[in-house]
Design a protein around this nucleic acid. Structure first.
Length: 499
RNA sequence: GGUCGGAUGGCCGAGGGGCUAGGCAGAGGUCUGCAAAACCUCCUACACCGGUUCGAAUCCGGUUCCGACCUCCA
């Protein structure tokens, strides 16, 4: 029933049937953020994309270890000779804070945003600074294996040497000769033998706030190294899925492959997955372009580009409406449309809970019954097709129509069999809640007291309506509306929702 | 310049040789004390020019435009 999952593998440029290395277990690593600023919409996209992967694999019954790192060191701002400055250290100097203070502040900001978006926390969240020793060991091993050289206290990966026996560029589709011709010439070139070489250990000057002792002198690990080191440490020399943003494809992931091969003698990743970018006015939203909107601003509506605040679930829904490998353009109108769509779906989700099937074993309407079963199956077909959440949402909307019709008695519940009803209920709920990670955020602040009060108020209003006391009933409705509570009179009594 | 990707109805977005998602907006209708919600119906599009094919938005070639990566980036 659940079928087989196909994943688009960047390495082979095609969808492949997913089979884990070890039966029933899945190892998955995703490149996390560098914590030197608040998370923005782009970070949310990556987080939601791989949260879906994590959730669905779990839904399929796999035992998943999901590792997502926090980069808190070693991320050189630029490679101008001798002046490479660590991002964290730079920000610390600017704000006159300790590096660890910066790391703490933004790590928590990321956690807050991830939680608000209803992303499940990863199984392990390792930091680069916590794995300096392991990284030094890797540098040494790569040196010992002859794929790196030391120069001026730094250690560089020898790409040309590596390429003699292994194709460098296979993941991003690059040819080394082209790279040698086109790679930008950096001013005051450093000790690298070739411009395509990259640092796996970088010496830094005395003044640097963050540095560690190593066999090659004081310095910091090269950025690409941490992911290779931490992924294999927690998932083994070979593991199933490695994810990240498309912008990390080259050079970051390419370097990771080279490092793994150079150190361990084999590639560690089986399925490479990359999510596409969020764009704004057709251009990539990014830190360096400065055209990003932080999630804090989005949730609060505090940014000139925003016409209103957008809730975490609205943003999640917005992203799920597009396929993760397509670019997704930010626009107020799109967010507003997503907000309405999300509310409609959530409403159906809540109504489904209230439906009670009479128990008839045969469907009164065989066509309707078959249609619903078909849609339930389609949810799996679609998520299995490289996580096509857009189509899954379309399926859920289809089911929503039925749920609403049942609830409003526009379609009798006995039209479908008890078994079909049960299937519809479990499928809808499983996809809405467990797989897509959606929830009714309007319920977040509600308590039993609120529910009790609303019950009482609606009872009073029902009495007024029975007595045709329209002024009282309308007064209740209007006043509640002012409190953002929407009253909906139906055949089976009145329901309410918080807007 | 090199490599790769994209152009879909009023808007957002799936899909990807014949069955022509979905959401939002709009029009009409049903229901309703009124309203809201809901349901039903309608609005049927794939940048341009050639080609392949019984048939192309979908495949191939070309053109135009846009973007990504090649430097840190989710």
């Amino acid at each position: 029933m659940k079928g087989e999952l196909k994943i688009y593998n960047t390495l082979t440029r095609q969808k492949e049937v997913f089979t884990p290395l070890h039966k029933d277990y899945v190892g998955m690593y995703v490149c996390g953020p560098t914590v030197y600023g608040h998370p923005h919409l782009g970070h949310a996209r990556a987080a939601v994309t791989f949260d879906i992967v994590f959730r669905y694999l779990k839904h399929l019954g796999f035992k998943v270890r999901f590792v997502r790192n926090i980069t808190d060191v070693g991320h050189l701002e630029d490679e101008v000779a001798g002046e490479g400055e660590d991002k964290i250290a730079k920000k610390a100097r600017l704000e006159k804070l300790e590096p660890m203070e910066i790391v703490k502040l933004y790590t928590e900001s990321f956690h807050d945003a991830y939680r608000a978006l209803n992303n499940l926390p990863p199984s392990i969240e390792p930091t680069a600074s916590g794995h300096i020793i392991e990284q030094i060991e890797w540098v040494q091993q790569i040196l010992d294996n002859g794929y790196a050289y030391e120069a001026d206290g730094s250690v560089y990966f020898d790409v040309l040497k590596y390429n003699e026996s292994h194709p460098y560029g296979k993941l991003s589709g690059r040819i080394l000769e082209d790279l040698l011709e086109t790679t930008r010439e950096l001013s005051g070139q450093d000790a690298k033998r070739n411009k395509v070489d990259f640092a796996i250990w970088k010496s830094v000057s005395e003044e640097h706030l963050m540095q560690w002792n190593s066999p090659w002198g004081k310095g910091v690990p090269g950025w690409h190294l941490e992911c290779s080191v931490m992924s294999t440490k927690y998932l083994g020399e070979q593991f199933d899925i490695h994810g990240g943003g498309m912008d990390l494809l080259f050079p970051h992931h390419e370097c990771e492959i080279a490092q793994s091969v150079a150190c361990c003698g084999k590639e560690s990743v089986r399925y490479w997955m990359h999510n596409n970018m969020i764009t704004i006015n057709g251009q990539k939203m990014g830190k360096s372009l400065g055209n990003f909107i932080t999630l804090i601003d989005l949730f609060a509506g505090t940014n000139d580009l925003l016409e209103q605040a957008y809730s975490p679930m609205t943003i999640r829904f917005f992203m799920l409406q597009a396929h993760y490998r397509s670019t997704l353009d930010f626009a107020n109108d799109s967010l507003k449309a997503a907000e309405k769509g999300y509310k409609r779906l959530t409403n159906a989700f809540n109504l489904l809970e209230k439906l009670a099937h009479s128990g008839n074993e045969t469907a009164a309407d065989a066509v309707e019954d078959a249609k619903i079963l078909e849609t339930c199956a389609a949810c799996y077909t679609h998520i299995n097709d490289d996580f096509n959440t857009a189509l899954v949402l379309a399926d859920l909307f289809e089911l929503s129509n039925k749920i609403n019709s049942f609830f409003n008695k526009q379609l009798p519940l006995n039209a479908i069999s008890a078994a079909t009803f049960a299937k519809m209920k479990t499928t809808f709920q499983a996809f809405f809640t467990d797989v897509l990670g959606l929830k009714d955020e309007a319920q977040d602040g509600n308590s039993d007291v609120t529910d009790g009060l609303m019950e009482l108020i609606l009872e009073i209003r029902a009495d007024a309506r029975t007595n045709k006391d329209w002024s009282t009933s309308d007064k209740i409705r209007d006043q509640l509306k002012a409190l953002n509570i929407q009253i909906k009179d139906g055949k089976e009594g009145t329901t309410w929702t918080v807007n």
